[in-house]
Amino acid sequence: MRDHPTVVESRGLPRTAGYPAAARRRRRAAIRAPYSLMAPSVALLAVIVFLPMVVALYISLTGLNQYTIGDWVHAPFVGLKHYLDGLNPQGALAGSFYTSIKASVVFSGLTTLFILPISVGAALLFNGRLRGRVLFRAIVLLPYIIPTFVNGILWRLVFMNGSGVADQLLAALHLGSRQTFWLIGARSLWALIFADVWASWPFLYLMALAALQTIPADVYDAATIDGATAVRAFRHVTLPLMAPTLGLGIALSTINHFNNFALPYVMFGPTPPDQVNVLPLNIYVNSFITFNFGLGAALSVVALVIMLTPAVLYLRAARVGDAP
């Protein structure tokens, strides 16, 4: 039931003859419609994502601690003090902060590096014809669905010196001492990486598998007709076609490892060795164990900026959001 006949419809907006005021109203309503539909989502995003970020930014500029938490809105304003404490190389807290950044970068980078070939290899294997493929696909997801804190406890037990499975196995194979320390010192990094690779590789595997399944069979047929071997087909057909999805997977995986708090916390506790004193753990200890919420918030903001780097690089490389 239209009030007035539509003369021309262009770019989705109705244009009407006569009654210009009513026409303008309808035109404005039509323009507003998508925004109105988006508004609830935008409001929720503002509440769930942006408001906490604004609050964190505000807290990072205050001296919020155990003395002021009862009236946190009125915590004293300290400006950039916490940023300077954390970032100034001469500052008392800078050593710990830079150690944590290094630990997080090394941990997340190496973990992703190890996960990538495992995930792609498994995806290639389970994408092919294989007896019991459905069962295997389900089994490989098990590490991913086990809660992280359970993984942490499990791997802490595995790497306990003397009694742990790792030491027992290495000793049985004459590859190491039964008294090798994995939870302290330099080896702690390898223990953490091993545990995280085991727990999180199915994520990248799923991404790789999804990418493989979108590649049409006729592309491989054409490659075969052109005389491509399996290796050449993988290198020149499979990998390029998987690249966009794999790129996203690598970016998300790196961010997830960088932000992993539960696994290092359960494995090493609040005073971990330097090699595994990752940034989320450092922020947690500053905020919730030593009640220095202002400093913890400032470190969180810095961590956010660091993590934006791979995200932005990926988005630019993939041209996400650009018109086709």
Binding site: N161, F181, I184, G185, P272, P273
Partner: peptide, 13 residues
């Protein structure tokens, strides 16, 4: 705890 943990790690290793 941080200082002791660090030194104990040295001793352990």
């Amino acid at each position: 705890g941080k200082a002791i943990n660090k030194m104990a790690s040295q001793i352990g290793v």
